[in-house]
Amino acid sequence: MSQRLTVNGRPREVEASEDTPLLTVLRDELGLVGSRFGCGQGLCGACLVLLDGVAVPSCQTPLSQAAASAGVVTVEGLSEGGTPHPVQTALLEGQAAQCGFCISGIVVRAAALLATNPSPTGDEVAEALERNLCRCGVQRRIIDAVVAAGSAP
């Protein structure tokens, strides 16, 4: 079944049933592997995307819901045109990752936070990332980087 949706500002059409998880569509049909599969249960945050500007786990978002939205933005879409999002720049400046598998979802959630709260405190960042998991123990560097991204001129 053909479904139309907007991803990173571009209209796309995919052949997949409407209950296919958006994550699978992004990774396998659209070649956007930046959204990572971590748990498939919406509990780790590795697959977050923006759906109408709100960070949602794409593993728990059926294709039909994405098709009904105004648009999906993935981690790739945040640096489109070759300019990294300020969160990405700050994460690289702070070397705020180890294995990096969690970081796509963290970038997406932090970008959503900065869109509504441009200069968050460390506590606000930690609260926003409450449902993102990091196993390598880089949480403090990540919090500092997001705060720095918010403070950037």
């Binding site: 592997v33 930046g34 959204s35 993935t74 981690v75 790739e76 945040l78 640096s79 990294p84 990405q88 994460l91 690289l92 070397q95 990752a97 294995c99 990096g100 598998f101 970081i103 796509s104 970038v107």
Partner: peptide
């Protein structure tokens, strides 16, 4: 390795 990871490549 971090640019690929942070930029979602």
């Amino acid at each position: 390795d971090l640019p690929d990871k942070v930029l979602g490549r």
